[in-house]
Write a protein that binds this DNA or RNA. Structure first.
Lengths: 232, 232
DNA sequence: ACAAAAGTGTTACGGTTACACCCATGC
DNA sequence: GCATGGGTGTAACCGTAACACTTTTGT
């Protein structure tokens, strides 16, 4: 009656991940598209019976970005009774000509563990999974309508990221190893969606004693070259 | 092969709850004891297939405390592969002469959603569930060795509570509807495990514009009677 | 009157903001 | 030299800390 996957994965439980990137100007997230269905979704997946939750999420993010050891934070588990939609799942599977009988377990009610990831945009090579047809960056301010409760998950992820950015010093994960103070400020501004005062920001960051100053970055611009910094 | 409960609950997923109370002096949590096994555990349970995660936790907390509509915050999902221990579960079931064949699903690997609750200590009438023999308050500084990873869950709950107490104004849930400024300060001190300055604390709380002042509380003590406050 | 605890006024301190100024770089 | 943007010095501002003082209650 039920297929092989029913033995492989923990039933009724999934993870979803809001993968944040920063293109030098705006904050973006990765969104999957299932062609022929008009459905958009967050990258996510299931947890194998013999792997930890964290392993499953790490693996899923690595598969879709090509980056290992990304910064990951689990922020909330979504457990409403009707948050999943068997019809949506069915149409995705049908569009891919999958055997519905074998995938019956996917149509059940699911509780999902929400995560967000911060990655260096430049290093990413987005790869769709075997059900979705494309994966692409979307401006956080311009996220399309997503399936099920995925928009709610994105909103919550952004809220948690905003609360964490100042105190937990995680902005570095969105930047290359060496960056200018201006770039760091732009990351903060993109996340908080507000402009910050240049001098105050610089002094605050320096006073935290978490930055190491390196050589200057000569861009060939007609002004003083900024220092490069890295996190200690 | 598998019993009726296997149909009733979502497999491999549970919730656990760190229930905080304040006895006027110290911060305490509720802990279950399984007699004849020497095992202590957090109150927890399983999620029925046709109920939301939140409903399940609310119901579980209400059953063990007798209080409805308690303050509940979900703080982390614990998903390590070997966090559960089938031997411990087996000995608990055996001590209660349960049919092990019917409870086979309980011996599988479980992922658990960690919550904490804040309740008014005075109103509580602790009731054990049908597997544990007793439930009692333990000083947060004197928690016994708990089964599986429950000590880790307690530590994390306390950490999150400490981070949230100042900004999220949740201390009220540990107190009766009307309380004195001193009581409120004692709650903060018990949670943060540090002494606070009386005058600064008072001014900070009042400046937040979240307290309503009521009549004075005459205790018959030889000093000025304190005002009673409630949260707006 | 006195002791004890609550409530408030005043000053000091530390971190952030605002603004000015100087520095380095390419045209 | 000048325009542009980076880096730093200084004073104002604001919230909290520290401490003194007043108020209220029962003995």
């Amino acid at each position: 009656m039920k297929g092989a996957n029913n033995k492989k994965f923990i039933p009724n439980l999934s993870y979803d991940c809001v993968i944040f990137g920063f293109n030098g100007e705006k904050l973006k997230i990765l969104i999957l598209e299932y062609h022929n269905t008009g459905l958009f979704a967050l990258p996510g997946g299931y947890i194998k019976k013999e792997e930890s939750l964290q392993e499953a999420v790490n693996k899923g993010v690595e598969e879709r970005t090509g980056i290992k050891d990304v910064f990951l934070d689990q922020f909330q588990t979504f457990g409403k009774l009707n948050r999943t939609d068997p019809d949506a799942t069915r149409s995705i599977l049908q569009a891919k000509n999958k055997d519905l009988n074998e995938k019956q377990w996917m149509m059940e009610r699911f509780i999902t563990v929400g995560h967000y990831a911060l990655i260096n945009y430049e290093n990413v090579n987005p790869k769709p999974d075997n059900l979705s047809d494309s994966i692409a960056w979307y401006d956080i301010k311009n996220v399309p309508q997503l399936m099920m409760d995925h928009n709610e998950i994105v909103d919550k992820a952004l809220e948690v990221l905003r609360n964490n950015i100042s105190e937990k010093l995680i902005g570095m994960n969105l930047l290359p190893a060496k960056f200018t103070m201006k770039q760091l400020q732009q990351v903060f501004e993109a996340i908080l969606d507000e402009t910050l005062r240049r001098t105050s920001f610089q002094r605050k960051m320096l006073s935290m004693d978490i930055l190491e100053r390196h050589e200057k970055l000569f861009e060939g611009k007609a002004h003083k070259a900024p220092y490069l910094y890295s996190f200690k």
